[in-house]
Nucleic acid binder design. Structure first.
Length: 462
RNA sequence: GGGAGCUUAGCUCAGUCGGUAGAGCAACUGGCUGUUAACCAGUUUGUCGGGGGUUCGAGUCCCUCAUCUCCCGCCA
């Protein structure tokens, strides 16, 4: 009977005394003269299975030479373990060495730095930390679909390649099949994109929002969840050039609904991973962030803070704290301000709403005061901004005026403006940084450690 | 895009005042009848990130380039 390590751990009392066989990779081994132990992991579970063998094995001499990282198939009997670190173990009757790992296998039985492990991204998923991270990443992705599907949201696949060259959110990666050494030129020397693959200049998407708003007007509640690309030279632990983003959009809804759904979703994701990845979460709590479980449980049972930008500014000014950037109405909240608010003042996730319109995107709805827009950012301790969203400007004339004010061209947004001509309504949505959510849930501090093969400036190895 | 720091053995690091290279782990060899990052003994391991300079002499001081990390900006 071939079993996975997961199945054995989940039902070992009834498997005791039975003959089984398992296949997996050697995590670590310990040998003595006449016997030895192998910790075998087959990837299906966070924990290993301890294999015990002795010199009754025909290939005992070979088995004692097994190296960390090797792949094996072990046949034997599952028995109770005399050791107190594990309830059971596999007494080997046959060990087949399938792929002996070269002794240079770089993962040793000791702690490596995450910096080093990033240089061997092809092997790092075999470590406890990355196995736990990527298991949780997978569960969170599923939980997001589950959350929205349970609420009757429709999942929309918005395009990866976009022809809107002015989505307004940062530098973009250009997509082209033109010969870079000899591109076709217009008479004025500029590149003639009519000769390019799509007959126009195209880029990788920086946001699916403008597209998903169209489907929002057909299905009412929708979301996208897919890769997003930013060509910013951002060298920080929370920025990547390629990341995944969840962008829900809700029709007939206002900013408060936006916050309610965000808060409900964050709490849903927290309880989902606590329930479905207890071993991994315990591991993070012990090795990555000692306060993780306590913090997540606290957040689960408390209301998120909600303040307006204006109130937040007053709070910062009132604090008398020396900031590098002096808090003042009209400037954007600096990272130091955000950290102070969410980590020191509120000590929990915090929505900041109604920012000055000058520092926010054109599509955000202008408030009655004509000075602020119905925007919201969700700040969380440790990670910072995890969600950015807004109520959208649904009034055709106001939106056109905003596009012109921002120096954009309304022709480029004809189809977006059409939504305001044909059955417009108050609607809102937000973007959740998927990796930032995974960071928040695991306590892992660097975005490069929650992406299987991260892409950052100057790094696209693997 | 702006700033700071780092780079020494396969890995993690130490290296004092400028005087010619160290430890632990890994690997390898041997020992050990219940280990838990096993233990004990022994052996091997270096373009001190690259280039240039100062000096009798540079891992150490200076210049320069590169990588990586962190902070800021951008933002999710």
């Amino acid at each position: 009977m071939a079993l996975t390590v997961y199945e054995i751990w989940k039902s070992y009392p009834e498997k005791l005394g039975k003959e089984i066989d398992i296949s997996g990779w050697v995590r670590t081994e310990r040998t003595s003269k006449n016997f030895g132990f192998i910790e075998l992991n087959d990837g299906t579970f966070f924990k290993n299975i301890q294999v015990v063998y002795d010199d009754t094995l025909p290939n005992f001499a070979e088995v004692t030479k097994i190296t960390t990282g090797s792949s094996l198939t072990v046949k034997g009997k599952l028995i109770e373990s005399p050791g107190d670190k594990q309830p059971f173990e596999l007494k080997a009757e046959n060990i087949e060495i399938i792929g002996l790992a070269d002794p240079e296998f770089p993962l040793q039985k000791k702690r490596h730095t995450t910096e080093y492990l990033r240089t061997i991204a092809h092997l790092r998923p075999r470590t406890n930390l990355y196995r736990a991270v990527f298991k949780v990443r997978s569960l969170v992705a599923f939980a997001i679909h589950k959350f929205f599907t349970e609420r009757n949201f429709v999942y929309v696949h918005t395009p990866i390649i976009t022809g809107s060259d002015c989505e307004g959110a940062g530098e973009m990666f250009q997509v082209s099949t033109l010969d870079m050494k000899k591109p076709p030129l217009n008479e004025d020397g500029s590149i003639d994109y009519s000769k390019d693959f799509f007959g126009k200049q195209t880029n990788l998407t920086v946001s699916g929002q403008l597209n998903v708003e169209n489907f929002c007007m057909a299905f009412r509640n929708v979301y996208t969840f897919g890769p997003t690309f930013r060509a910013e030279r951002s060298n920080t632990q929370r920025h990547a050039s390629e990341f995944w983003m969840i962008e829900p959009e809700m029709a007939f809804a206002e900013l408060k609904d936006n916050m309610d759904v965000s808060e409900e979703m964050v709490k849903y994701l927290i309880s989902y991973v606590l329930e479905n990845a207890p071993e991994e979460m315990e591991f993070f709590n012990q090795w990555v962030d000692k306060g993780l479980l306590e913090r997540l449980n606290f957040v689960l049972n408390s209301d998120f803070g909600r303040v307006t930008y204006t109130e937040a500014m007053e709070e910062l000014i009132k604090s008398g704290k020396q900031f590098d950037y002096k808090p003042e109405w009209g400037i954007d909240l600096q990272t130091e301000h955000e950290r102070y608010l969410t980590e020191t003042v509120y000590k929990r996730p915090l929505f900041v709403t109604d920012y000055p319109k000058g520092i926010k995107a054109f599509y955000m709805r202008v408030n009655e005061d004509n000075k602020t827009v119905a925007a919201m950012d969700l700040l969380v301790p440790g990670v910072g901004e995890i969600i950015g969203g807004s109520q959208r400007e649904e009034r055709y004339d106001v939106l056109v005026k905003r596009i012109e004010e921002m120096g954009l061209s309304k022709e480029d947004y004809w189809w977006y403006l059409d939504l305001r001509r044909f059955g417009t309504n108050k609607h809102c949505g937000f973007g959740l940084g998927f990796e930032r959510m995974v960071m928040y849930l695991t306590g892992v501090e660097n975005i490069r450690d929650v992406i299987p093969f991260p892409r950052t400036p100057k790094n696209a190895e693997f």
